[in-house]
Amino acid sequence: QIFVKTLTGKTITLEVEPSDTIENVKAKIQDKEGIPPDQQRLIFAGKQLEDGRTLSDYNIQKESTLHLVL
């Protein structure tokens, strides 16, 4: 699982696999929060994550925290 922290300070927990794409993660966030993926920007280690890449591409491991910017 990974954590996604929103600007409001809320933390969302997501069940993911390293092979999941960023697009996939955004879809999971939409399921939980109702935020359309095209409004979501995910930041990890100061980098904006691209939809077509996977979590493992960015070396995002379990218990990692991503930041969600709208």
Rank of each mutant, 00 (worst) to 15 (best):
Q1N: 10
Q1G: 06
Q1E: 09
I2L: 08
I2K: 01
F3K: 06
V4C: 04
V4H: 01
K5S: 08
T6Q: 07
T6R: 06
L7W: 13
T8R: 10
G9Q: 04
G9I: 02
G9K: 04
G9T: 03
T11N: 06
T11P: 04
I12F: 10
T13P: 06
T13M: 10
T13W: 08
T13R: 06
L14V: 09
L14N: 00
E15C: 15
V16A: 07
E17S: 10
P18L: 14
S19L: 09
S19G: 11
S19E: 12
D20W: 09
T21G: 03
T21Q: 04
I22D: 00
I22W: 02
I22V: 09
I22Q: 02
E23W: 13
N24T: 15
N24M: 15
V25S: 00
V25F: 03
V25R: 00
A27E: 10
A27C: 12
A27K: 14
K28F: 06
K28R: 08
I29Q: 00
Q30E: 10
Q30D: 05
D31P: 02
D31L: 15
D31T: 10
K32I: 13
K32R: 09
E33N: 08
E33F: 10
G34D: 05
G34N: 08
G34S: 05
I35R: 02
P36T: 06
P36M: 06
P37F: 12
P37R: 13
P37Y: 10
P37T: 14
D38G: 11
Q40K: 02
R41Y: 12
L42A: 00
I43T: 09
I43R: 06
I43C: 14
I43N: 06
I43V: 09
F44G: 02
F44H: 08
G46W: 04
K47A: 11
K47V: 15
Q48L: 14
L49D: 00
L49I: 04
E50H: 08
E50N: 07
D51P: 07
D51Q: 05
D51W: 03
G52I: 08
G52M: 09
G52P: 07
R53P: 05
T54A: 06
T54D: 03
S56P: 03
S56Y: 10
S56V: 08
S56F: 10
S56T: 11
S56K: 13
D57Q: 06
D57W: 10
N59C: 10
I60E: 01
I60W: 03
I60S: 01
I60H: 01
Q61T: 12
Q61L: 12
K62V: 13
E63Q: 10
S64W: 04
S64K: 04
S64V: 07
T65C: 09
T65I: 15
T65R: 05
T65D: 04
L66T: 02
L66A: 02
L66W: 02
H67Y: 13
H67M: 11
H67E: 14
L68V: 05
L68A: 02
V69D: 07
